[in-house]
């Protein structure tokens, strides 16, 4: 589904991604973790071409992302993305947020888009808020709407870029619950997160990044059992410290 082959990226002379290779198969949930500044958000943004790469190749469903001939808007319309800061459109009502891209990009009729949007809103438990504006919802609610907005496009995979990092602690679970449900339904997901509980529960594989490199790319069992690299062990011991 997602193939990342020998990807390198520079900001000026600073190399943010160093020869990264990995893949996400259909139905797989891959969690990407690592210290801040390790390039994990950059990597996930390369997958739908929000960030350009200078070397290597990224394929999504056999479409080459870093090919100038690729119709990026079309590709992106099939790849859902959820951002750290939700990025709902504040001037549009929740319903309009859900419908905008369905109508503009997929060319669905207004009524069809609305029905689809409301069904998904119901699924994330927010049907009552359809006519509100993003600024009137809590962070957790906004992020659930953002997930519904991405799902409304009928994506074949979903990218999550630290979806719970900007949330108050008590709102993290309501968002994770939605994501767990999605994973269990077989959605292909690439998730940048520090939520190791989530990784334990639903991830198939865990990727650990540091300084722009993929240091570990293993099954969940192996990662939590005995990560091979010292760097990953250190990282885990720091962030799991309070959970155990």
């Amino acid at each position: 589904m997602i193939e990342i082959k020998n990807v390198s990226k520079w900001y000026g002379s600073f190399q943010v991604l160093k020869d990264c290779s990995t893949h996400v198969s259909k139905g797989e949930v891959v969690v990407v973790c690592g210290p801040s500044g390790s390039g994990k958000s950059t990597l996930i943004k390369c997958v739908n071409g929000l960030e350009a790469i200078q070397q290597g190749e990224i394929l999504v469903n056999t479409t080459k992302v870093n090919d100038p001939k690729t119709n990026l808007p079309k590709l992106r319309s099939h790849v859902g993305m959820v951002f750290q800061h939700f990025e709902l459109f504040p001037h549009l009502s929740i319903t309009d947020n859900l419908c905008l891209a369905q109508v503009e990009v997929l060319g669905r009729g207004k009524e069809e888009a609305r029905e689809k949007g409301l069904a998904l809103l119901d699924r994330v438990g927010l049907k009552a808020h359809a006519d509100k504006f993003p600024g009137q919802l809590s962070g957790g609610q906004q992020q659930r709407v953002a997930i519904a907005r991405a799902l409304a496009m009928g994506p074949y995979c979903m990218l999550f870029d630290e979806p719970t990092s900007a949330l108050d602690p008590e709102m993290i679970n309501e968002v994770l619950d939605v994501m767990v449900e999605l994973a269990q339904e077989g959605m292909t997901m690439m998730v940048v997160t520090h939520e190791m509980g989530f990784a334990r529960k639903v991830a198939n594989r865990v990727i650990f990044m540091d300084q722009g490199q993929i240091i570990e790319d293993t099954t969940k069992e192996e990662f939590f059992g005995s990560p091979r690299s010292e760097r990953a062990q250190q990282f885990l011991s720091k962030i799991l410290h309070h959970c155990n």
């Binding site: 929000l50 808007p73 992106r76 859902g80 891209a101 990009v105 907005r149």
Partner: peptide
């Protein structure tokens, strides 16, 4: 905001 719009395919 620009990224979110792009990510939706706009």
């Amino acid at each position: 905001q620009r990224q979110a719009a792009a990510a939706l395919g706009l």
